[in-house]
């Protein structure tokens, strides 16, 4: 289904351990994974299975204990800090369960933040942010404080912010986890619409099977390892 020959993201044998010695805990124990450009992939698993850890590694927010992440087929370990920052700023968008915003800033200012970090001139970023707020139907709330929005509105604002620099991948960690099912569905529609219409790759961390089913593909995690949908290690026949 993906016409592009190369994978936009590829994880190779990722291991992530926290702590050392006795206190050492392996959150990921050798995870390999390929994500094609334009794909919508769900990372599914119980709480504590290592979903968020995997997503952070894929998004280059953290570095693995061993293994590597390839970006467009290129080893991310070869990237400088500046290049990594630029990649996260321009090519990736983030949506979190707890939204995360600057509480004192307005909705518009929050959406403009990635543009400001990139160095887009004020007038241009205002225009772009307003355009995005119209897309998520929040343009009438542009001047409001982010904290005064409802949950669904907050998540729409966060999606607008994630889209600011026209990213190629959106990483969403439990995007509907804090929302009721009706509001959650609006957010899901918004994300899958972006995936369909703009070819934006989606990496969605969730434990919601219904949301996972809307994705092209599901990756199941259990105790830091990829398993099949029944929770059995890969390669073991049903």
């Amino acid at each position: 289904m993906n016409a592009q020959p190369r994978n936009i993201l590829e994880a190779r044998d990722l291991v992530k351990s926290y702590g050392t010695g006795e206190a050492r805990f392996d959150a990921l124990r050798g995870v390999s994974l390929e994500i094609g450009s334009g794909e919508a992939v769900a990372i599914v698993g119980k709480s504590g299975s290592g979903k968020s850890t995997l997503m952070h590694l894929l998004a280059l927010l953290d570095s693995p204990t061993s293994g590597t992440v390839l970006v467009d087929g290129q080893d991310s370990r070869a990237l400088t800090t500046t290049q990594t920052n630029q990649l996260r700023n321009e090519a990736y968008g983030f949506v979190f369960q707890q939204f995360f915003m600057i509480p004192s800033a307005t909705v518009l200012e929050n959406v403009m933040l990635p543009l400001k970090i990139k160095g887009v001139p004020p007038r241009e970023r205002r225009e772009r942010a307003m355009e995005l707020l119209r897309l998520v139907e929040l343009d009438d709330k542009a001047g409001n404080r982010g904290t005064n929005l409802s949950g669904g509105q907050k998540q729409r604002m966060v999606i607008a912010r994630a889209l600011a620099n026209r990213p190629r991948v959106i990483f969403a960690d439990e995007p509907t986890g804090n929302l009721d099912s009706a509001t959650g569905e609006v957010i899901e529609d918004l994300l899958f619409g972006l995936n369909r219409e703009h070819g934006i790759t989606l990496v969605i961390v969730t434990h919601d099977e219904e949301l996972a089913q809307r994705c092209d593909r599901r990756v199941y995690l259990k105790d830091g390892l990829i398993v099949d949908e029944r929770g059995e290690p890969l390669g073991v026949p049903a």
Partner: peptide, 16 residues
């Protein structure tokens, strides 16, 4: 803390 983390996640360098 959150805000700083957010800005760093969104690509703001440590120097900035």
């Amino acid at each position: 803390t959150r805000e700083i983390g957010l800005m760093k996640a969104m690509g703001m360098g440590a120097g900035r």
